Lab assay of single mutants.
Amino acid sequence: QCIKQELICKWIDPEQLSNPKKSCNKTFSTMHELVTHVSVEHVGGP
Rank of each mutant, 00 (worst) to 15 (best):
T36D: 10
H32Y: 03
V43T: 13
K26L: 15
V40W: 03
E6K: 02
V43I: 10
C2K: 14
H42D: 00
S18C: 10
P14S: 06
H42A: 02
G45K: 08
C2I: 15
K22N: 14
S18Y: 05
W11R: 11
D13A: 09
H32I: 07
K22M: 09
W11H: 11
T27I: 15
I3R: 03
L34T: 02
T36G: 10
C2E: 13
I12T: 11
V35L: 08
Q5R: 10
I8V: 12
T36F: 04
K4R: 03
K22Y: 05
V43Y: 15
V38Y: 12
P20Y: 03
P14F: 01
S39G: 10
N25V: 06
F28H: 00
C2G: 14
K10Q: 14
C24N: 01
N25Y: 05
F28E: 03
S18H: 04
P20N: 09
K10E: 13
P14V: 05
S29P: 14
E15D: 06
V40G: 12
N19I: 13
C2A: 09
N25H: 14
S18P: 08
V40D: 12
P20W: 03
F28I: 01
Q5L: 02
D13L: 08
C24A: 01
N25K: 12
S18V: 04
L7C: 07
P20D: 12
E6C: 03
T27L: 08
I3G: 05
Q16V: 06
L34N: 02
T27D: 12
I8Y: 07
K4Y: 02
I8C: 08
K22W: 04
G45E: 10
W11D: 03
P14L: 04
L17A: 12
P20I: 04
N25A: 15
F28M: 02
K21Y: 09
F28V: 02
M31K: 15
N19R: 10
S23I: 12
G44H: 06
Q1I: 09
H32M: 06
N19Q: 13
T27R: 10
Q16D: 10
S23V: 13
S29Y: 01
V38F: 12
S29F: 07
T36L: 04
L17F: 13
Q16R: 04
G45D: 11
K10W: 06
C2P: 08
P20V: 09
C9L: 01
L34R: 02
I3P: 03
D13F: 11
C24L: 00
L34F: 10
L7E: 13
P20L: 08
C9Y: 01
K4N: 09
I8P: 12
L34A: 03
Q1Y: 02
T27Q: 13
H37L: 02
T30Q: 08
I12E: 13
C24G: 03
T27E: 14
V40I: 10
K22D: 10
C2R: 09
C9Q: 02
V35H: 15
H32A: 13
Q1T: 13
P20G: 07
Q16W: 10
S18Q: 05
K22S: 09
K21F: 11
N19H: 12
G45R: 09
K4W: 00
D13P: 05
K4E: 12
V40A: 10
E33Y: 00
H37V: 00
Q5F: 03
H32W: 13
D13W: 06
K10D: 11
S23Q: 14
V40N: 12
E15V: 08
I12V: 11
Q16F: 05
K10F: 03
T36S: 11
E41W: 04
N25C: 02
N19V: 11
I12M: 09
E41P: 00
S29A: 09
L17C: 06
S29C: 05
P20S: 03
E41T: 11
L34D: 01
N19C: 00
S18R: 07
T27F: 13
I8N: 15
W11K: 14
T27V: 12
N19W: 02
P46I: 00
H32L: 04
G45M: 05
L17E: 14
T36I: 07
C9E: 03
E6N: 06
N19P: 09
L34S: 03
P46C: 13
V38D: 08
E41L: 04
E41A: 10
E6G: 07
M31G: 12
P46T: 02
S39M: 06
V43H: 11
C2N: 08
K4I: 02
V40E: 12
T27Y: 01
T36M: 05
E6W: 01
H42K: 01
V38C: 10
H37K: 01
K22I: 13
L34C: 01
K22F: 05
K22A: 08
H32V: 07
S23D: 06
E33I: 00
V43F: 12
P46W: 02
H42T: 00
C9I: 00
V35N: 15
V40T: 10
